[in-house]
Design a protein around this nucleic acid. Structure first.
Lengths: 224, 224
DNA sequence: ACAAGAGTGTGATCTGTATCACATTTTAAA
DNA sequence: TTTAAAATGTGATACAGATCACACTCTTGT
């Protein structure tokens, strides 16, 4: 089992692992492929593995008091659900594939052993957790304070800049999911998107989106 | 310098430190007292220390796009701002004392050294970060989806159960701050609190609050 | 190729909450 | 104590966004 040793998508933490450790990781690591819509792990199920997304797009979501809430969109390569695996016995949220996704299931004990024996690995995980939390704080405050068009604009910029690195892309979410991510009703998402289209800020046709006036979109994202 | 060696409020992580390490911690650790309203650290300032709150109540807050947002209320003993210190060069949020607060400033390099040399300490920090993040997810979703009375009720229960462990307490926040915490306008906080008073769920007089009907308050917290 | 179901666009209403306006109370300072 | 300043309560109004209603358009399977 040398899959991890020669893996070209190792995490920044795993780059600190030695050959022996990578071999050990390879032995306890299972690679699985998920299709769009497949659930990778489910809220309230026992959390028994650390998930590493080698490739693909995943939504992290949890059942809120009123409706489903998408907490974030994660893009491989990235760890998924370290907090929910190390912080509780049971998953506090679900992860669902938005595209075809390559995932490694890492045995939690092996992961703990690395933290124990390799302090560079541990430190990298800590920094990772910290950065995630900061990102989440910012996202949360934006969600809470901006109004709908601002949240939609911000999310479009997020997809363009962080996920697809292009101003033309296919939205990997339904209007309903886009609402769950931005805290809007399905109808309101439609309305805001077609308003943006009418104003010439973006061009939409179904799920395909093209950003025409990025400055204006950025302005809307900031101011309302 | 043996203040840490004989400290009776050590963190769960620091309990894994040996005598040598505690002595080293004592040498690099500065104890400071803050009064109500004092800023412990400030958003956008250089983050150079890990903060450990030995005793007291602190608000964590950041400037949002529209107004100030209180992210959480922290009660000593607890670490503060590990994410903002290890995750970025600059503080992503501020911390302000709500009561008289005893704080230890821990040199970041010493903290890193402990992560490096003591894997139990590191693991404890990791679990801590994970649990914090889970708590924050839940808080965020509740804030986003519940409507105003539900958020106010939830926050009152939080103060009663988590902070004061009593159904009679003095609110350590102004109505304005309570709004910044629950995402309401100052006026709306007043209205909701006096409604709850009129319905006999709580009894208010200024900042002092008594919960009279906890079941009903819980119901309101859950259902709107 | 077709039907059935899911997903989407858009107008008309309804409602929670912000905002404005002002009276009143509390706190802090002189 | 007096006075200014800050914090609070409460009604009236305005508006963003949810909800309802329905037509339309894609999927998906048979």
């Amino acid at each position: 089992m040398e899959i991890c040793k020669f893996c070209n998508k190792r995490s920044s933490a795993a780059r600190h692992l030695g050959n022996d450790e990578l071999e050990k990781l390879g032995h306890s690591c299972v690679e699985v492929s998920f299709e769009k819509g497949d659930i990778i792990f489910k809220q309230n199920a026992l959390s028994s593995n650390i998930i590493y997304v080698r490739e693909g797009l995943v939504k992290i979501h949890m059942a809120g008091p009123e409706r489903e809430q998408i907490l974030k969109i994660a893009k491989g390569p990235t760890y998924l659900g370290i907090p929910t695996t190390l912080g509780d016995k049971v998953n506090n949220y679900s992860a669902t594939a938005l595209t075809t996704t390559e995932v490694c299931f890492i045995d939690i004990q092996v992961f703990k052993d690395f933290i124990d024996s390799n302090s560079d690995f541990a430190y990298e995980i800590i920094v990772n957790l910290c950065k995630n939390e900061l990102g989440h704080f910012h996202r949360c405050v934006n969600q809470l304070q901006k109004q709908s068009p601002g949240r939609v604009a911000e999310t479009l910029l997020f997809f363009a800049d962080e996920i697809f690195e292009s101003d033309i892309f296919d939205l990997p979410l339904s209007r309903h999911e886009f609402g769950d991510l931005t805290g809007n009703s399905r109808e309101n998402v439609s309305r805001i998107l077609s308003d943006l289209d009418k104003e010439g800020v973006i061009k939409i046709s179904g799920k395909s989106i093209q950003i025409l006036d990025k400055d204006k979109l950025f302005f809307i994202s900031k101011n309302g």
